[in-house]
Design a protein around this nucleic acid. Sequence first.
DNA 1: CTGTTAGCGCCTTCAA
DNA 2: TTGAAGGCGCTAACAG
Lengths: 358, 358
Amino acid sequence: MTASALKTRSRSRSDKPNRPATVLKDVARLAGVSSATVSRALNAPNLLDVATLTRVQDAVRKLRYVPNGQARALRSQRSFTIGAIVPSFDYALYARATSSLEREIEPRGYALILASNHYDLKTELRLTRALIERGVDAFMFVGSDHDPELFVLLKEFGRPYVLTWGIDRSGQHPSIGFDSQAATRTMTEHLIRLGHREFGLISAPHEGNDRARERSAGVREALRAHGLDLKDSHVQYAPIALSAGTLAMEKLLALRDRPTAVVATNDVVAVGALMACRKAGVGVPGEISITGVDNTDLGATQTPALTSIQTPIMEVGRLAANYLTARLEGTDVEFQGELPFEIVLRDSTGPAPSAGSA
Amino acid sequence: MTASALKTRSRSRSDKPNRPATVLKDVARLAGVSSATVSRALNAPNLLDVATLTRVQDAVRKLRYVPNGQARALRSQRSFTIGAIVPSFDYALYARATSSLEREIEPRGYALILASNHYDLKTELRLTRALIERGVDAFMFVGSDHDPELFVLLKEFGRPYVLTWGIDRSGQHPSIGFDSQAATRTMTEHLIRLGHREFGLISAPHEGNDRARERSAGVREALRAHGLDLKDSHVQYAPIALSAGTLAMEKLLALRDRPTAVVATNDVVAVGALMACRKAGVGVPGEISITGVDNTDLGATQTPALTSIQTPIMEVGRLAANYLTARLEGTDVEFQGELPFEIVLRDSTGPAPSAGSA
DNA sequence: CTGTTAGCGCCTTCAA
DNA sequence: TTGAAGGCGCTAACAG
């Protein structure tokens, strides 16, 4: 049998999992106790006589017993599974937050079940229903844009959840995140102080993406406060991909009143924009300053290195895990929903070019 | 209530999920049929009279019925969940393969349960046991380095699985991937043709990472075939992180017989190496050529752009999904395990510097 | 095409 | 500290 064309030895019928080789009752028989005692040995060992406990544990080991979680969950209404629904696996930040969540819950006996909604709220609803069906105990979602039905569903099934990335200003939902609007507002103010007056904005599409909306709003807020204008022609929407960022920047470069500062709502499109400038021979930051959000390795390693905003994403994952497990344990949790961000100044930003072309 | 300090309204006892508001029996009652009929309406609708089916579906909708997957899985021995255990979420490539897997299984009714083994085989074994406990139907693993006990467990519980990234040369396990050794061998040969004679290697740690081992072996193989040597001092091990790549390169730069070509086993450490050269003012590719593996955005956007190897990772995820679902459906699957890779030449490689310093 | 019956494997009373 | 008994919600086998 060659490695490159491995044919499956098909089984009699189909590949249904084997029914467990040994079940709790077998362990009970070997240990000479009742099945209730084995159950206690597994779930509340301190209730048992030490000698009994040892005997049961020996039997468990000898039989290589693995409990059936389905049966357990059916009976106890707990699956020890936490669901995370993120917009996409491909953007490194979601992966990192998820990783941080998983790292936190795994030692507490919870497994992570992960799904991606591809920035679509109906998909998210459908996925959540599928996960509730599978007995997922609690949920992490990203952002505050969700189908209203989602919350009805979660409430109906009594599943704790937490919204991450942003802060839910309505106070209706537990949330952990940072102030995206303040982040880009701060960044824009910095650029204004550097003398920039003509701005461009490259944003992820707003639909179903409150982070992008808030980040755009932050730019507009800062500009308005300084009596500056953001023309429609200077706003480009680009999905989170290098090529889209490049394309968006090319459009901005083609404008007669070309911006001297371009704020992007994430590092990926910002780097795409950087590449457009490289290709076009436009100096960064000499002619145009560019900024991102999320402070990724991608941005930090560019030439020039990208000015960005460090977002507290690992901490978001960690706190989300804490919150959800606490809720599941019945602990009374109080938590700080808002985390700080930090502007990271690098080489892609500088003073506005002195000669103002109008 | 402020958004930043949201206190949980704690429930009477703990936050156990609600028991389902409506169960199958309720639907049966409303529709005026037996519970078996409802079950058929859900799982084999074509067996039913259309009128009956419609009545049941109406009842399902009216009661907002969501089936209990635990009970279903307990009875049918199928959870419609596929597990993927990857070394880490943080390396973009694993995220991308996982994403591709999920995209493929989700429309077929399977959910993805994801865990990270942090490059530790014992952890992987433990996680797998936890997932089998949760009724996961089938598994995707990365690479061919695994605890032998893992396969005993999978066999005992009759769970289909597939190893990805590499090809299992032993022919004992279904696998889908590409030839890592050939990849770096080809790359090294290219560098040799460019006149390089003094090589450096920056590899991920070999322990529990067959991909890194094979990639290192590929470099050695090519060198040996051309009568070239790879000194121990010229081999550096670095975890997949920029800073580790930088550190490794700094050590190589400090050597008296400094390499003129450095092959890294992944793009991240290659970019770290690039940064070390930038800092040290060493010209790339003028003084040193550097290559990566995986052809990531990170590498492609550097200055100079990183020469790398395009690995067929999305396809691996897709084929893994196909294989596993086919096995679970009982279909006889035959598949090509080996996929092609492709060398992507960019600006970080060039001819060896003409003056050979010895 | 539909209903009846039994039981998946476990946990949780209740009683001893 | 331990055992006996019942049932979580669903589906599969067998009738009809």
